[in-house]
Design a protein around this nucleic acid. Structure first.
Lengths: 343, 343
DNA sequence: CTCGCCGGTGTGAACGCTAACAGGGGTTGC
DNA sequence: GCAACCCCTGTTAGCGTTCACACCGGCGAG
């Protein structure tokens, strides 16, 4: 006697529709799924009956039969959703948001919690799982994953036998530097996050490569620090003191970029007239709040999600696909901070 | 022949476990659900068999029988998740994140899309739906909702017969003003968002009330504008020109607050020595990036989610609950921007 | 005129699990 | 020694769909 509130009519099922339309359940099923060949008159009669009864077919019953739930799990580790929500959007686009729904599981950075979620998803028979990382660092593969496809997005799996979709951060950095070069800057510094981070390394590499290709050298060593605005302000102060001739700074994040912008203003430098700035993330609240608005490397997270979703879909439909790491290019969004040099 | 990839052994079911343990399916079911009375030896044997086979019970089959899916829908309208993710977290806490999972549906502000999602949730037989708003404005009730409980969070439903959980924004504003008064400020101005917004109105009312209760008057009229930093900077400039004696500003959002902080600095005023600042949202990237870090009214969204989840759970378990609007108080987070006045 | 075919519809067996009920030994009480 | 219980376990009927197949009548061809 569970699931049916006493006194309340149980939910209308396919049999009710069949009865009202004067046909069998099989026929109703065919009509509602557009299968088989039925007389038009029958189709209409069934449809009307379903309408009148407010019949909503049960996906759970259908799943039981078909083995597919049209459901995926999205495991996220950044509780603010700055990375995972764009990924979710992209994945929805690829999976068909009108037919596949996502269970969103925020692990809150707790491996136990993650385990629980994975088990939960397994019991619910999701068709696949997307693991959205928060950092570029390769992450340990999901443990205890059910026998369904898993795609790692943003942070690739440490196991190369898994499928991962990542951002070409090195290319993104190169994009930024090339843009600065194209606008005539020559003395380019790089202020970034903590040394050791995979993201930081990739961005440093990309910066160095782009400069090398132009026959230039970086102004000073990369300035390693934190991801915060405070660090950006601090770095800017030192930078202009030690290298007064710097004419552009590529910053490892928008927050750093914003800090650098403020720090430069405090030091009496104008952005972009004296020094041009480019950040990374293209996170609107920061990039657009910056004075002046910050040119930024967009990580294309929605595209990452779209690719991950497409990969997942393929794996779901065709059984196994070949594993490996797929890379999505970055995109530069130009704003005032990298405008023309002044005077 | 759907759902079973040819050549791959179909998923292990309860019958396999039963077979291996040498008992019947009923017994296995009892063991796994801790029901009925079984010999300990039997329990262990079954559990071992399940373990060895890697058996994972299917929640969809169980749902079909019980009528409950232990699944809810979260409809969100703020695609960045600034409001809806905290609400999701709170709801998960209340619903038991280890037993209830949430389908997250981002409507992207499209009513058609919302409709689709609602239908999708209905077909999936979710146990309930939480609608997380993006603004305080009452929103039209969900149309075509399935016969399951719905709770509106943050933005209440326009239909008073629905269940809603909202933030006491007026009280939050009063909290901010009272804090400023307690720290000795007397000339308090209010720079806020667009006139007409429900949030703006509530915050203006709360500000006025708190000042009235202290026998004071607001400095000038409320300064209506946008939600942006740019507006904050602009407003600050005018404010200090027209009212040089102002010693505190309560800002309608953290972004505005941050703009005001920058604007005041540009005008040569010190924060908090000359003028104290309080914002609203307690959004860390903005509040902590501010110079100095911004005291802010926290909207307690996680608590809103928790309350909404608890309400939903009650409605799910006990049938109908009485409708109405439940209010969650705000919380003040004190940072440097409202420190002691200087000299 | 009869056979066969085909379009249209009904029937019933899954899908994987739960829970009510039936049943079968062993134990206890008289 | 027999009956009545009481534990434990097996059996089975759903839950709401889908799909393969059976079936039925009408029509065209031989």
């Amino acid at each position: 006697m569970v699931g049916r509130v006493a006194g309340k009519r149980p939910r209308v099922g396919i049999v009710d529709v069949a009865q009202r339309a004067g046909v069998s359940v099989g026929t109703v099923s065919k009509v509602l799924n557009g299968r088989g060949q039925l007389r038009t008159e029958t189709r209409d009669r069934v449809r009307t009956a379903a309408q009148e009864l407010g019949f909503v077919p049960s996906a759970v019953a259908a799943s039981l039969h078909s083995g597919r739930t049209y459901t995926v799990g999205l495991i996220m580790t950044d509780h603010h959703g700055r990375f995972s929500l764009p990924i979710l959007h992209g994945a929805e686009d690829a999976l068909g948001w009108d037919e596949t729904l996502a269970f969103v599981c925020d692990t809150r950075d707790d491996p136990i919690r993650e385990q629980h979620y994975v088990r939960s998803l397994a019991r619910r028979r999701v068709d696949g799982i997307i693991v959205a990382g928060r950092r570029t660092e390769p992450r340990p593969p999901l443990s205890g994953a059910p026998p369904v496809p898993v795609v790692y997005a943003f942070a690739r799996s440490a196991d190369p036998a898994d499928r991962s979709v990542v951002v070409d951060e090195e290319g993104g950095a190169a994009l930024a530097v090339q843009h600065l070069l194209r606008t005539g800057r020559r003395r380019i510094a790089h202020v970034t996050g903590p040394n050791g981070h995979a993201s930081v390394r990739a961005r440093v590499d990309g910066t160095a490569r782009a400069l090398r290709e132009a026959g230039l050298e970086m102004v000073g060593e990369p300035w390693y620090g934190g991801w915060s605005e405070v660090w950006g302000r601090f770095a800017a102060a030192i930078l202009v003191r030690e290298h007064p001739d710097v004419d552009a700074v590529f910053c490892g994040s928008d927050a750093i970029g914003r800090g650098v912008a403020d720090g430069l203003r405090d030091s009496g430098r104008r952005v972009p007239e004296d020094i041009a700035l480019v950040g990374v993330d293209n996170w609107l609240p920061t990039a657009e709040g910056c004075r002046p608005p910050l040119t930024s490397v967009d990580l294309n997270l929605q595209q990452v999600g779209r690719t991950a979703g497409a990969l997942l879909l393929e794996a779901i439909q065709c059984g196994a696909t070949e594993p490996g790491i797929q890379t999505v290019p970055c995109r530069l969004v130009v704003r005032a901070s990298s405008g023309p040099a002044g005077h």
